[in-house]
Every structure is written in C-alpha cells, then in structure tokens.
Computed example of a mutant assay.
Amino acid sequence: MFIKVFASAALFLVSAVSFAQTADEMVDQARQLEKQMKDAAALSLYKDALKVQADNIAALTGASELCSREGFRTTDKEEKSRIYTEAKSYAEQALKLAPENADANYVMAVAIGRIALASGAKEKVAASKEVKRYAELAIKFNPKYAKAYHVLGKWNYEVANMNTLEKAAAKMLFGGMPEATLQDAIANYEKCRKMDPSFLPNYLELAKAYKENDELEKCIEVLRKAVTLRPIYQDDLNIKSSCKKMLEDLE
C-alpha cells in the first residue's frame, strides 16, 4: 500500500514538474515570436501557457505587456478599453503572486499608463501617480530596468505637458501633482538609452522631449541614430518610420 501511495505521489510530482516546464517552454516560444514581430501568435501562446500553469509570472507579465501593445494599436474605443483592462488584470495577477517582481510592477505601470492616456482628464490625473509608483517599484527591484526608466520619462513628459483642464483636475483631486519637468523626462529617457540602446520606442520619445525643450541638435542626433537601428518588435517598424519622418521634417 505504501509503495502504491509513494508511486502515485511521485507520478504527481513528475507531472507537475512536466507541466511547469511545458509552460516555461511556451513562454520561451512566445518571446521568440515577439522578436519575429508576431504579437498575436505570441499573446495566444502566453495565454496557452497560463492554461497549463496559471501562476506562471513570465506568462502573466508577457500577456499583460502584449495586451497593452495590442490595445494601443486598436482604434475602436470600446475594444481598446477591453484590451487595456485585460492587460491590467494580468498585471494584477502577477503582482498578487510576486509583489516584488520587477516585471510585474513594470507591466502594471504600462497598463495603467495606457488606460490613463485613453481616458478623460480626471481619470488621467488619478492614474498618473500610480504609473509613477509602479515604475519606481520596478526600478527598486531591478535598478537596471531600462524600460521602467522609459515609463518614468514618459510620465514626466506627460505631466509636464498637462493642459489646463488636467491641471485643474490634479489640483482638485490631489492639491496638485508631483513636480515633473522636461529635463527629468530627458534624464530618464537617456538612462533607458544607456541601459538598452536597441529599444526603439525610447528614441522617438526622447527626440520629442529634446524638440519640446528646444534642443534641436540633440533631437536630430537621436533621430539619426534611431533610423540606423534594426527593428526587433512589431511596433518598431512604425516607430522607425515616425523617426525618419520627424528627421526629414527637421533637416
């Protein structure tokens, strides 16, 4: 009897390990698909991995980040909102399982940020502080997290450029917003560039910040570098095209 119970327990353990490995393999395949610019297939694979192992952090964060990207591309407002909500849900699940995981905090910052940019003034202001908090937590848990610095740069840029209605909402809801400047945006974007020189989205946002700050020579230098980079992810082609157009307009 003991032998049968032991054998059953061993079989269960082996099966559990096998499932975990299968989920990890799916995550690895999904990441490869991302680099092949096949986001839809990658997202589907992340979701399949979660069917095998619901608490796989890499699958949850991968699914969240891709939902945020997909939502950004979507033009229909209701569909955009649905996809962003899904992105936030995956991030929440990841944070519940691993609150000190840098990726989990990063994808939450991205999801909330996407929702904020697609919302009205009050909602945007209310979400803004959360974006900053989660981005800073991602950096706390991984000080070399390039994309988290990019999010902080974007946060500074957006807050520094708030319109009158948004500033009024911030004052009413919170008594104002934390200080944010174009210089801080640029500093964070530059940290991202130093840590990950291949991250194309950062070049476009950095160029915009330099232009806004009347530093055209630096703006042009950033754009010239951007157009030489190899696209890696699906959105990179459009981002590189935007950099090229911006450069042509300035030269």
Rank of each mutant, 00 (worst) to 15 (best):
A20Y: 10
A138H: 04
E79F: 01
L206K: 05
A187K: 15
I83N: 04
N202C: 12
V17S: 13
E248L: 13
F174T: 11
E248F: 06
G120F: 06
V159P: 10
S119H: 07
A58D: 07
S64L: 01
S8C: 13
V5F: 09
V125R: 08
M26K: 14
L250N: 07
T85M: 09
Q21L: 14
E179G: 11
E123M: 13
R193S: 08
D24Y: 04
A187I: 05
Y157T: 05
E212R: 15
A63V: 00
N156I: 07
A109C: 03
C219G: 07
L182Y: 10
T22W: 04
K88S: 05
R69M: 00
A94E: 00
F72D: 03
R73H: 04
R31E: 08
D103F: 02
Y46M: 05
Y189C: 02
L250S: 07
I57C: 02
L165G: 02
L182E: 11
D24A: 13
A30V: 06
V110P: 00
R193K: 15
E34A: 07
L165Y: 07
Q29T: 12
E212P: 04
D55I: 05
S18M: 13
E212C: 07
K218S: 13
I3V: 14
K144P: 02
S81P: 01
L182H: 12
T75E: 14
E79C: 03
K211V: 09
Q183G: 12
Y134N: 08
E130W: 06
A207L: 08
L223G: 08
K124L: 13
P178V: 09
K96R: 13
L50S: 03
K218E: 11
N163G: 15
K171P: 03
E65G: 00
M162K: 10
V222R: 10
I57K: 05
C243L: 11
K154T: 13
S15P: 01
M195T: 01
P99T: 09
E158C: 03
D76C: 08
A10R: 14
N163A: 12
E100T: 15
Q53D: 10
L13S: 14
V52Q: 06
A98L: 08
N156P: 09
G175L: 13
A168M: 15
S68R: 02
K240Q: 12
A40V: 11
I139Q: 03
K167C: 07
S68T: 04
A121Y: 07
D214P: 05
E86L: 14
Q234T: 06
F12M: 15
G71E: 03
T181L: 11
S64V: 00
F6A: 15
L247G: 08
Q93W: 00
A116V: 05
M195E: 12
S119V: 11
P201V: 07
V227G: 04
Y84P: 02
A187H: 09
F199E: 06
T181D: 09
I186W: 09
F19G: 01
S242K: 14
L95H: 01
M1F: 08
A148I: 02
D103W: 03
Y134C: 01
G120P: 08
Q32Y: 05
K245V: 10
E179L: 14
L229E: 09
I115F: 02
G176Q: 10
S242A: 15
K154R: 14
L237C: 01
M162L: 15
